[in-house]
């Protein structure tokens, strides 16, 4: 049972690239850099899994008690300094490979807003159980849907009216909590047009499951037209 199962594990990981796994199908800059690290960590961890499981299976088969060995007691050893040092040092190497890009990307993601060129600012208000998007630039308000132009950097200023929510568009960027006492920022640049699901990822009450919104990324031209039309409608 054990052997086929570990193959099943690896199989699923390999297979996962081609089904509708939104996190692995990134269409935004933030999600892109997160995905790169995700793949790096999976690759490193698959190496770990392979090493551990092959030793595990080998030892189980080789050293199992065979019939007639019930009263057979092997020699006892305390340990082995060399081996033990090996598995203290090796994890450090793996962690180092993982840690450096992790730290670099974290700084880069957290400090994006300053370096942005002409960003589109959107003020997002989360409340039980809906999202309100306000474009200060055009004075447009949308509820439970947000429209973005492709290839233009976006800054979401996140704020909550009541409890804590979390803002998540899996294909564009990872989560950022939406807090009642403090404003958070999430930055990203959508790279492809299309419609993406957005959701609340922090448990926020009875209808938490329904606190979703739709993100539409359109061509810059289309976006400009839309802002003009929407502006007029507001007036």
């Amino acid at each position: 049972m054990r052997v086929p199962f570990s193959f099943y594990v690896i199989g699923i990981i390999l297979m996962s690239g081609c089904s509708n796994l939104s996190v692995l199908d990134s269409k935004g800059t933030a999600a892109d850099s997160e995905l790169k690290l995700l793949y790096l960590s999976i690759a490193l961890m698959v190496i770990v899994l392979l090493v551990v499981f092959s030793l595990f299976i080998r030892f189980l088969i080789k050293y199992r008690e065979r019939p007639g060995q019930e009263n057979d007691f092997p020699t006892q050893i305390e340990g082995n300094k060399k081996l033990e040092t090996t598995w203290i040092v090796l994890p450090f190497v793996i962690l180092f490979i993982l840690a450096v890009p992790t730290f670099a990307t974290t700084y880069q993601l957290d400090n994006k807003a300053e370096s942005m060129d002409e960003p589109l600012v959107i003020n997002v208000t989360g409340k039980q159980f809906s999202w309100v998007f306000y474009y200060p630039e055009f004075e447009i308000t949308l509820e439970n849907e947000v429209k973005l132009p492709v290839d233009r950097p976006v800054i979401f200023n996140l704020h909550s009216e009541d409890v804590i929510h979390s803002f998540w568009i899996p294909q564009l960027a990872g989560k950022k909590d939406v807090l009642p006492h403090k404003e958070n920022q999430l930055t990203l640049t959508p790279l492809e047009t299309g419609t993406y699901d957005g959701k609340c990822a922090e448990f926020c009450g009875a209808s938490h499951a329904f606190m979703t919104f739709e993100t539409t990324v359109v061509e810059q031209e289309t976006f400009k037209q839309w802002t003009n039309v929407a502006d007029k409608q507001e007036d």
């Binding site: 997160e34 995905l35 690290l37 995700l38 960590s41 992790t102 990307t105 960027a173 990872g174 989560k175």
Partner: peptide, 9 residues
């Protein structure tokens, strides 16, 4: 891995 955690979290 912090950035990836933004997705898993």
């Amino acid at each position: 891995v912090v950035p990836a955690d933004y997705q898993y979290h």
